[in-house]
Structure formats: structure tokens, C-alpha cells
Amino acid sequence: MARQGGKAAAGRAAHPAALSVLSVLALLSLWEWAAGGGWVREAFFPRPSSVVAQFVVLVRDGTLASHLSATLTRVAWAFLVAALPGVAVGLTMGVWRGAREALDPLFAFVYPIPSVLFLPLAAFVLGRGEPARVLTSAVTSFFLVAANTLTGVRQLDRGVLEAAVHYGATGHRLFFKVLLPGSLPWIFTGLRLGLGFALIVVVAVEMVGAEQGLGSLLWLSWQTLKVRDMYVTLLVIGFLGLGATYGLERVRERLLPWQPRVEVRR
């Protein structure tokens, strides 16, 4: 998200975040009061304080940690399995027109298929187990990384390429000193989107078939009607998504100081 409005607002309010904090506090206390007074059904909307209490319980007895680590491990593997071939394929398609034209129709067809559906396919190949879940979660991320990498290569300024060739960057030097660094910003966008999508699919896959993981905890809490557990899990997943997005953005800023700074959400 672009935040160019932030500076202007700073002049008016004492602190630009004050209103946001106030908004959250107001909603939480309204919720607390309404649930406590019986205005909304606590079976559906438990008091925030009781959700926090349950959070502490789940942290203490290790439930959250074991599910969280299962999910994180899967996301990490899926991300890795998607990112490396994704970048390689994207770069290949970027520099080699034959590959681009051959793969384009296949990718256009497979890319929009929701990843969860690949679970049976992956299970046929790898058996019902962890590798199948990881592979399933990697499918869409792979396409996102490849697509953005390809765009990164294609959008390189022709004038800059011409100049680089003129100053002797040919062959592998052209690739490693020009094409790769020049498309890095797009590769990073692809990685960021891919990481987000890996989380989405991992949770979905855990919901339909895994004994461990935040998705299965969510599913279990529905089936056993433990609403507080559900809210805790949702919060954790939310912060996980937030962390993945902003974490990778920080990494990008650190690694690509030559880019004018743009803040993004997504």
C-alpha cells in the first residue's frame, strides 16, 4: 500500500497511528461489553478477554507451538519447492522465446486452477503424506514466482540493455550482471506473493487432511465447537500472513537499496 498520505496526516494529528489504535481499542471494549452484557451470543463472539486467556492457555500447554511449527515447516518447504524452480523457469522463459511460447498455453491453463485440487494428484505421485501436502501448496506459488520473474526480465529497459552490451556485457556476464539483478525487484514481488499463497494453500490443505497444523486446529475447533480456540488460531494465522508480507518487504529493502522505496501491501 502506498502511504504517501502518512506525512500529510502527521501534521494534523499528534500521531498518525493514534486513530487506528483508538479504533481497535474502541471495538474491543464494545465487543467486551456487548458480549459480557449478553447483547451478542458469547457462543459465537466470545469476549476478547476470554480469547486472550485461551491464547495464554494454548501457548502454555504447547498446543499452539506444535501446530504452528507444523504449519511453518510446511510453508517453508512449499516456498522453497516453489521459489527455486519458479525463478529458474521464469528466467529461462524471459531470455528464451521458444520456452516462453511453448509453456505459455500450459501455464495459462494450469495457473488459475485452485491449488487444493492438486492434492489428489500429488497424493497419486507421492503417496498420502507430507511431501504431497508440500507439493500441493507449492503449485500456485511456483506460477506466481515464475510469472513475476518473467515479467521482470521482459520489462528491463532496452536502452540499459543496449548500453550494457556496448560496454562488453555479453553471454554469462549479460545474464549475471544485467538480467538477473535487473529483474530482482520483480522476482521479490513474486516471492512475496508466492509466500502468501503458500500459506493460504497450506492452511486449506491442513483443513481437509492433516493431523497437525493451524488449519487442522481450526477444523478441529469447529467440529468440537471450541470457538475461542478458533479465534486464537485465526489471529495467529493473520499475524503470520502479516509477518510474511512485511518481513519479505524488509528483506527486499535491505537487499535492493538501489530502488526508490515503495511500500506495498499484498
Binding site: F44, M207, L234, G241, L242, R266
Partner: peptide, 19 residues
Amino acid sequence: VALLYPIPKVALLPLMLIL
């Protein structure tokens, strides 16, 4: 929006099922 946007929306299915 910042908290809910990155949540996989499938994860909200159990909540919807309860509601």
C-alpha cells in the same frame, strides 16, 4: 483490513460454519 487481508479466507470457513 491489514490483519484480515492476508488471512487465507478458507480459514474463515469454520467461523462461517459456526455462525
